[in-house]
Design a protein around this nucleic acid. Structure first.
Lengths: 192, 192
DNA sequence: CGCCCCATGTAAGACGTTACATGATTGA
DNA sequence: TCAATCATGTAACGTCTTACATGGGGCG
């Protein structure tokens, strides 16, 4: 019925709700106090987002009733919501994700283990690794191409981006190692 | 009259136009072919953004006329646009910028040298360095606090973020070194 | 002549931000 | 009782996305 993709915030909410049913206020607290501060904790973002998820049948909220308790609506994932979350997580990592949606990739990875299983985490790492390995040389090429014409700060900014990706690539390899050591045999190309 | 801040895309356009007057199409090409692919090259974003900048008096467009040429409107910065660009660039880097707007900080840095001068680049690097140095320990604390309760992938995701920031910090120190070597004496705290 | 690139735009819709608004409950 | 916190929302606004639309010019 809807072809509109769930927004980043929506996906973050799905992931958090999968870990633990929570109220809008709980979710706001998470966004305002943890490393997930990258997401907005404003009520104007979260409550409408929860409503949209509910309209689409991905979450269901129930008003907590208990003597002397404040009105509080706790949301939990529906079966459909779980399916949507899994679908979002297992999508392969494309170059477009590396360029414009790294945050989202990391979010998917963060939720992958609990929502799908360690093998999904490994798959994300592998495809991320592959995309990075193919993208980084392109950036190096751009750097040497523009070296003459770019101002120092422009060149340094580009270098910073490249170093960031290289750092991420090293991390991904390390993370794959962690999973290999733990128990999960990577599908076909682990460390070697 | 307007208190609305210029959007990220608007700032990127101002910076590019400062480097070289260009048409909307030229700008789209830059976004679609260089490392600035992080910005949208869609006409539905760029043309309205240019119009808004023009309405606010920050850029002015003039239709290129020449025999046998296609209609083409080339935009250039006005004095007010230059002032706005400089103001945006020299803003100190705050923790909020580090958490939610690193892209923007790097963009400001990339333009800083041409639009303001190397001393502005150095100031950005210094305040970025300071914010990173104060933020990274917080993240480490969060990591050790949650180590027990987080799933492996969640912990690894957080570690990736931390490593990214650490990498950026190393880069910032290196970049400061570059400027020190070049000629610019950092204001008060350069490398030592 | 037809196709592709140049070059500019508009319209509908979704989303996030900011600011405002409301009311219940806890604790000083 | 008064303030702070819990808890949920709405409205206006600006912006981006996606998709559509238009036309000139070079080239085979």
């Amino acid at each position: 019925m809807r072809k509109v993709a769930t927004s980043r915030l929506g996906c973050a909410l799905l992931g958090l709700l999968q870990q633990k049913p929570s109220s809008g206020y709980d979710l706001r607290k998470i966004f305002s106090t943890t490393a997930m501060t990258t997401y907005s904790d404003s009520p104007g973002a979260i409550y409408p987002a929860l409503q949209r998820l509910q309209q689409r049948g991905l979450v269901r909220g129930s008003i907590e009733s208990g003597a002397g308790l404040r009105r509080r609506q706790v949301f939990h994932l529906t079966a459909q919501g779980t399916a949507e979350l899994r679908k979002w997580i297992v999508r392969p990592v494309l170059r477009a994700d590396v360029i414009r949606g790294l945050d989202e990739v990391m979010l998917r990875f963060a939720f992958s283990e609990q929502a799908v299983g360690p093998s999904a985490s490994v798959r994300i790492l592998q495809s991320l690794q592959a995309e990075l390995a193919s993208y980084i040389p392109d950036l190096h090429a751009q750097l040497s191409a523009g070296k003459a014409t770019m101002p120092t700060s422009g060149r340094l900014a580009l270098e910073s981006g490249i170093k960031g990706y290289e750092c991420l690539l090293r991390w991904a390899r390390g993370a794959l190692g962690t999973y290999a050591r733990e128990k999960i045999a990577p599908a076909k190309d682990g460390r070697r």
